[in-house]
């Protein structure tokens, strides 16, 4: 399988008046077309920094990222950040608006996504009229409208409470599978990582190196959590995180 993204010996530090903070140390991994990869690691170890590098928002001091030509990334932040001064629909078109690519076609595509994910009747409402899960779906639609090839998800469900989180993460990940997108998700929830991913990359504590990688060899369906392998993976990853 071909790689759509490769990180090669990435090192990154933040420089502040308080001193130097080495965050990432010699990180290398690849993401294959259609793969769903999770990055797990202790809090503050540099997971969000890694995603920002992948999205090209910041440049690493050492090492490089290689992407397939013309690869478009879509980034989903920790919270939905839907703008209250726009309708949900106009929020979803924000990316296209910025790129200056709003056409009837994009609008139709956005509408089809709203329909697919059950938000049609909320399209012209203000974001505050939506529940937490619905907002998360709207934020996902906003990420999907520019048709990204790879999705970067930074703890996309952390703003939700536990019950919602299970449902929404199942829902969102099945949407991503259905759209046949490549995705990289940051999480510190081990069960979440195992239940949605093909592969889990475990970061060490700061400065982060890759401690281990786990291929999750289970069929992708809602029954993963009941699979006996689930506990095995859980324990292995949990041990790595200690």
């Amino acid at each position: 399988m071909e790689y759509v993204f490769k990180a090669e010996n990435i090192s990154f530090s933040y420089y502040t008046l308080q001193g130097e903070q080495n965050v990432l140390k010699d990180i290398s991994f690849g993401i294959k077309q259609g793969e769903f990869v999770s990055i797990a690691g202790p809090s503050g170890c540099g997971k969000s920094t890694m995603l920002s590098i992948m999205a090209g928002l910041i440049k690493p001091q050492n090492g490089k990222t290689k992407t397939k030509d013309g690869l478009k990334t879509g980034y989903m932040l920790q919270q939905d950040y839907l703008f209250e001064w726009r309708s949900v629909f106009s929020n979803a078109l924000l990316g296209a608006e910025i790129k200056g690519t709003i056409t009837e076609e994009t609008k139709e595509y956005a509408k089809s996504l709203f329909e697919k994910y059950g938000l049609t009747e909320f399209m012209y409402k203000k974001p505050s009229a939506l529940s937490g899960g619905m907002r998360q779906r709207a934020a996902l639609i906003r990420t999907l409208v520019p048709k990204p090839d790879i999705l970067l998800l930074d703890e996309p469900f952390s703003a939700l409470d536990y019950q919602n989180r299970l449902n929404v993460s199942r829902e969102i990940s099945s949407i991503i599978k259905k759209e046949n997108k490549t995705a990289v998700m940051v999480t510190h929830d081990i069960s979440e990582a195992i239940s949605v991913s093909d592969r889990v990359i475990v970061f060490s504590k700061i400065p982060a190196v890759i401690k281990n990688e786990f291929e999750i060899d289970m069929p992708y369906d809602s029954l993963r959590r009941d699979n006996p392998k689930f506990t095995k993976y859980f324990n292995e990853i949990w041990k790595e995180l200690q």
Partner: peptide, 11 residues
Amino acid sequence: NMIKLIYTLGG
């Protein structure tokens, strides 16, 4: 983060 969102969308 709202500002970051704009940059993630290529703004």
